[in-house]
Design a protein around this nucleic acid. Structure first.
Lengths: 207, 207
DNA sequence: CAGCTGCTCTCTCTAAAGAGTGACGCGCGT
DNA sequence: ACGCGCGTCACTCTTTAGAGAGAGCAGCTG
């Protein structure tokens, strides 16, 4: 920690890592100590360096951001993690934040916002970009799906029929229909295809 | 052109622009002369600087990559454009390349590949990453959708019913069904929902 | 314990979706 | 002139989806 805040970057795009690293290393109060290109490397890097802040992309090969957050916080409850992703409306964000991630950023954020987010998180102050905060409020109002419904939704999104879904989940077709109906109601969709569109927009599923 | 290859960067993420700029300016045979954050800026920047290479993100606000390629090549048939995007399997790639873009890259490409792509394109040599080349061959084998079918597919993806689609396109429901059936056959899907999933994977539609 | 939620299952009924075929006009290139 | 692809439309028939309305059962909680 020669230079104040130590940072580990985890992102699968070399270009993005370079950009962040350049940005961070230009500051005189922070420094990148390691980079990771996938989820497993991210965990390993954290273990090795114990940085002040872990900047983490949500979408990565091998192991996605959500599970990295889980694993790291399990072992190090005081870890300070800043989530960064391309997409707003990603449902995973909320999962991360409720699991204890300290902040959340969109990749299209301006430089200054990124840097101040890192500084905030390094001092254990939560940082949430305004766009995300707004989304969070919107989300509150909307009904959330149960785990089982998410299971069904995933299969619906793959184009499976009710009968097929029933077989895969070892339930009857009638039950599958019940779940689908609940999904349609909660997502305010008329057809299963529209439900998939809505769910995708909200980041409930990843096609 | 004090430094060999002049480059204009167009990407909506400041982080990515920084990363690319840092990478490029470190080389002694190339230089970033301007950056753009959306499609319109990209066109304006090209007009102003006439760079040797325009590095262009496919997904941008206001005006997407495809239409930027169109506009720029219309005015400057000798423009050298390098397409860069996050997603493989994006149908728009092929549209760009067939319109005259000189190369195509994935954002998760290693630094060295990005640089050599820029050098290749600057000398008017086409550059196509191996992963994309492979996709292109796969795509050849698969049947392509007609424009009308794409229109219908878009509405299907929004969750519209056949009747609704017919109304919006001013055709009969029977005709809409015919199109949907053709889509299902070409995409090798059993249901419309699966068709949407397949189409999304292939980048035929953007949800 | 009583109430709540989530998951399961059953039943009926109507509206769509999809398979299978056939057909007609239009523009386009051989 | 002919074939061909495309878009349009029509018809039947089977399967699936979705609305509506209950109901039992586990687990959790005030």
């Amino acid at each position: 920690m020669r230079k104040g805040i130590s940072v580990v970057l985890a992102d699968d795009h070399p270009v993005v890592r370079d950009g962040l690293a350049a940005m961070i290393n230009q500051q005189d109060d922070m420094e990148v100590v390691a980079e990771a290109g996938d989820g497993d490397e991210a965990i390993a890097s954290y273990e090795q360096h114990h940085p002040d802040v872990l900047v983490l992309d949500l979408r990565m090969p091998k192991r996605d951001g959500v599970s990295v957050v889980q694993r790291v916080l399990e072992a190090h409850p005081k870890a300070r993690i800043l989530i960064m992703t391309t997409y707003d409306g990603d449902e995973d964000i909320f999962q991360c934040l409720s699991q204890g991630a300290k902040g959340y950023l969109l990749k299209d954020a301006p430089r200054q916002e990124i840097l101040s987010a890192i500084r905030a998180v390094s001092q254990d102050r939560p940082y949430t970009s305004t766009t995300v905060a707004a989304k969070a409020l919107q989300r509150m109002a909307k009904p959330s799906l149960t785990q089982r419904e998410l299971d069904v939704l995933q299969l619906v999104a793959e184009g499976r029929s009710n009968k097929d879904i029933a077989r895969r989940l070892s339930i009857t077709e009638g039950t599958a229909k019940t779940h689908v109906k609940a999904i349609l109601t909660k997502l305010d969709a008329i057809s299963r295809t529209e439900a998939v569109a809505v769910a995708h927009k909200r980041g409930l599923i990843h096609l």
